[in-house]
Design a protein around this nucleic acid. Sequence first.
DNA 1: GAAAAAATACCGACCGGTCAGTCGGTTTTT
DNA 2: AAAAACCGACTGACCGGTCGGTATTTTTTC
Lengths: 219, 219
Amino acid sequence: MAVKGPPQGRQSRSEVTRTLLLDAAQEIIADRGYHGAAMDDIVEAADRSKGAAYFHFPSKSDIFEAVLVRLADRLENKVQQAISPKRTALERLDAALTTVLSTFAKHRRMARIALVELPAGNSPLQDTILVMRGRFARLIETQLDAAIAEGAIDPLNCRLVSRAWFGAIAEVVTEWLRTGNKKTLEAEMPELCVTLLRSVGAEIEPGGAAGNNGVSQDA
Amino acid sequence: MAVKGPPQGRQSRSEVTRTLLLDAAQEIIADRGYHGAAMDDIVEAADRSKGAAYFHFPSKSDIFEAVLVRLADRLENKVQQAISPKRTALERLDAALTTVLSTFAKHRRMARIALVELPAGNSPLQDTILVMRGRFARLIETQLDAAIAEGAIDPLNCRLVSRAWFGAIAEVVTEWLRTGNKKTLEAEMPELCVTLLRSVGAEIEPGGAAGNNGVSQDA
DNA sequence: GAAAAAATACCGACCGGTCAGTCGGTTTTT
DNA sequence: AAAAACCGACTGACCGGTCGGTATTTTTTC
């Protein structure tokens, strides 16, 4: 008895299938990379068929793209939430950095997909990855611009610096992904933040509060 | 007629073949990435046969590894040459940075192989690439250590910072590789150097001088 | 120093396996 | 009963690596 009506739990079967496929793809790609992830494997992990997969996604690269977008949306959301209550650009910069780093520290698999997978050549993926990277670099760039406007730091080439920051973060996280050790990244986060901020001429006290009343909560 | 004796020009036929294969592999990998580079393509570009290729290199990953090592050796050499005449660690740091950046600017294909190709998953390549990256990070790390010893900068986590620098450089160069425009990278080099050096608390005069050396060797 | 023998380098058709994508047919939903 | 979703055997292209055989270079022998 029981099951029979279309909307089982909450989603239609179709939606469930889609999610199952996305989850499986994310998992497998994190393990084996894009090339190493065969559609047959993804399909098996999702407990669905190849037909179903190709019904929902026209090609392998499309499913990969969907995984990336979902990941990026989630992370960007988290960052926006973390920086919205901050008053100064410098604080927002620090908050954004910390959020991204701690999220990666918490979800290694995600970090792997977001940072390690950089297909060379002219795969159809490249565009998608470019857009992803661009989104995050932009996020930093915006805050840098704001910091300059606020007079917190001297004018500089924000596009260049935001790229450099992004690269620095990516490399440190990537290195940590290999050498394992959960602790390391979180332990080094503060120093990395300080270093990056110093590179634009902003000194902050590691003790926290950037020289002002400690209003932190509230919105 | 003519040619018949064993050592033709300078190298034996065997050595010529080896070089031909390496050159072709480097070219094709730069274009299409490791996965996209078929042995058949490499062999054809080298104007040799598959048998010859597998006579010299036991597997595809071995030929790739040989390409990487050759590239790394050349670049490291160049850097050593550039920094050896410098007296202070800070000057050596600046010289190393400038050399690497201008070399990449001059040889896009090389940059592509060195920086863009980061196979995920557990390919046999990964180790080789790790070693490569490690070599350059180390190079920076050594100079940072020296700078601290000289009292030029305050103590800091050199391992972390050198990784961050490497990542920053890699990302900036990678971005430049995509957006084309030969000029951009060279125009931005000085600012990037200044930014990196400032991140460790070292201010340097932007007066481009720094006793520039005419590095003009070729790779 | 030439012929013979041995070792080295090279050739390219072929094999075995992999994998993205297809398609006729079945089940579930509307 | 139509439409949407799903199934899974199958196809066709691709590609790393092999292997029997040939050409070239080096060594040995007379």
